[in-house]
Structures are given as structure tokens and as C-alpha cells.
Design a protein around this nucleic acid. Structure first.
Lengths: 152, 152
DNA sequence: CTTAACCTTCCAGCAACTGAAAGAGCTATC
DNA sequence: GATAGCTCTTTCAGTTGCTGGAAGGTTAAG
């Protein structure tokens, strides 16, 4: 056993190792150790502990963390990740549920994109009308201060 | 103008300067009273107090709050609002500064839009490839779990 | 005088982490 | 076996921008 102790960190990335310390899991999942501990706090992934108190992650727990990392990267909230995970772990799940979930998320993202597009257009318009020299008059500030004669 | 009735009655008798309680400022600015108090906590707008301890907003303080409301609506952070306000209140400000600020914000918003577009496309693609029936296989979950054979 | 609508402060919590402090454990090297 | 230099532990606090609620004081109206 002692042989593997340091090799875990250096070499063994993909082999089926019995258990992993948080540092290794952090490395292979790409999640900061802080975040992984936080995920334990919120009961997302609760690893066993070694005698010395160190967290001890199984391969499947590491996989779960990687799953969460991907789902978060796709814009799912932690709670949504929980739902996805339970669907993932449910052998009798309906993929229809997951599809519905994903499409709802798509609609939410698209709404947000529309809002941001409006913001960007408004700001850009204001900036274009701003002469950008040292004269004190500025359409952007005028607009913000509610001076209606500033724009258009 | 019904809003002002009570306040006018009360304040005009005492002084020519119109000052407002938080409820009135909330109404005319559209910001919740909670938010306005929070803005005092973070030293954005610190009103005087009446003898009874009530907050007493001047017209210009109310204007500042309206300014902040608009700027927040345009996606500026509180700290950015602070900068905008100091530019606004600086008689010698260069509108170039404001323009630069706004254009930077536009770029940030556009970056965010691009990210969201990618997310939306990925999710949408996965959903389209999901048959959406009760079979347990689901490309979305397969993708999240890192199964490369799932997609394409 | 009572009641309702104001106003006040303080405490707590949301999401999803991140930083820092203080201490214990482990490993490599001398 | 001492020591340097990692990794690991817990706990508290902070981030951003608010929002909710409790407990209580003030004011206006009927």
C-alpha cells in the first residue's frame, strides 16, 4: 500500500484506484478542493473518511463530481444538478424528463440572451452618440440622469 | 401627484425644501425601501435624518437613486455605478471616460452573450438527439457523464 | 383611543463559492 | 530522527446585491 501513496498524485490518473484524496480528485475533476468541500457541505457528494480524517473519494464519487462540473458548465444550478444526478442514477428514468429539463434551460438561456442583447444595443447606441472628448456634456450620463432631451 | 399629498402638506409648512421619507423615494424611484436602506449601508446615498430618526431624502439624493436604478438596469455593478456617479458629479469630467466605460461594458456583455449562445447550442443539440421516450438511454446524461460515444 | 400604515434596527439567508487562519499529517531528504 | 515543505483538516468570514422577517417606535385617521 505504501508504494502507491505518492504515485497516486504523480502517475495514476485514470486507473481504478480504490480511493482518492481531495487533491487528486480536484486534479482529475478540475474542481478546486474548496469547491469539493463545499459540495460535501451541501450534501452533494459525501465521501468516506480515512483514519486520519482525510476525505476518501471512490471512483464513482469522482465521476459524480465530474458530472457536476460539466452540468454547472452548461449553466445548470446546483439544484438542477441534483435533479440531473437523480435522473442519471435512476435506472428507470425517462429520457423524456431530461429532454424537457434541457429544453426548459435552453429557453431560459435564450431569454437571458435577449435581455443582454437589448442592454448591449442600448449602451452601444448611447456610446455612439457620445462625442468622447473633454466637453462636459455626455449622452450616457444624461440618459442615466433622466434628461430626456439627451437622446434622439 | 396624489403621492405627494401627504408629504407636501407636511413639509411645505416647515420648509421650502422638499424632503422625502423612504416610502416616497421608493415609490418615485421604483427601488424597494429595503434596497434603498441597503444603499445607505454601502454608503451610496446617505440621507439626513429627521428628529424621529426617519430618513430624509433631498431631491438630489432621490435623483441619485434614480440614476443608480437606471445604471443597474443597464447591467452596471454597484461599483461601476459609484464610478459613473463620480463622473456624473464631476463638473470637469471627460465624456471620453464615460464612453470608454460604456464600451468596455458592451464588450463584456457581448462576451457573456457568446458564452450563453454556445451553451444554448450545446444543450439544444443534445436535446435534439435525445429520443425523449422512456428508454433509459439519454444522450444528455451520457454527455454529462463523459461518455464520448454518446454524441456523434 | 385604537388601528393601520408608516418607519426603525438587527438578524438571517439566498447562490455558489473563495480566502485566510491555525493546526495536524505526511513524505523526502539530510 | 529532525526538519522543510507539502497536503490535509476545520472554522470563520467575505463576496454580490439584495430580500425577508421579527420586534418595536411614530404618525395619521376615524
Amino acid at each position: 500500500m505504501a508504494i502507491f501513496k505518492r504515485q497516486l498524485h504523480k502517475n495514476v490518473k485514470k486507473s481504478r484506484v480504490l480511493s482518492m484524496n481531495i487533491g487528486l480528485v480536484s486534479e482529475i475533476s478540475g474542481l478546486p478542493a474548496k469547491t469539493i468541500r463545499y459540495y460535501e457541505d451541501i450534501a452533494l457528494v459525501k465521501p468516506a473518511r480515512s483514519q486520519n480524517g482525510y476525505r476518501n473519494y471512490s471512483q464513482s464519487e469522482a465521476d459524480t463530481l465530474i458530472f457536476v462540473k460539466r452540468a454547472r458548465g452548461l449553466g445548470f444550478t446546483i439544484d438542477e444538478c441534483r435533479s440531473l444526478l437523480s435522473l442519471y442514477q435512476d435506472k428507470n428514468r425517462a429520457s423524456a424528463d431530461v429532454k424537457k429539463f434541457a429544453l426548459l434551460k435552453v429557453r431560459q438561456i435564450e431569454t437571458r440572451i435577449k435581455e443582454l442583447n437589448k442592454l448591449s444595443a442600448t449602451l452601444n447606441h448611447l456610446a455612439q452618440n457620445c462625442h468622447g472628448d473633454n466637453r462636459p456634456d455626455c449622452p450616457i450620463l444624461n440618459e442615466l440622469s433622466g434628461d430626456k432631451s439627451a437622446d434622439e
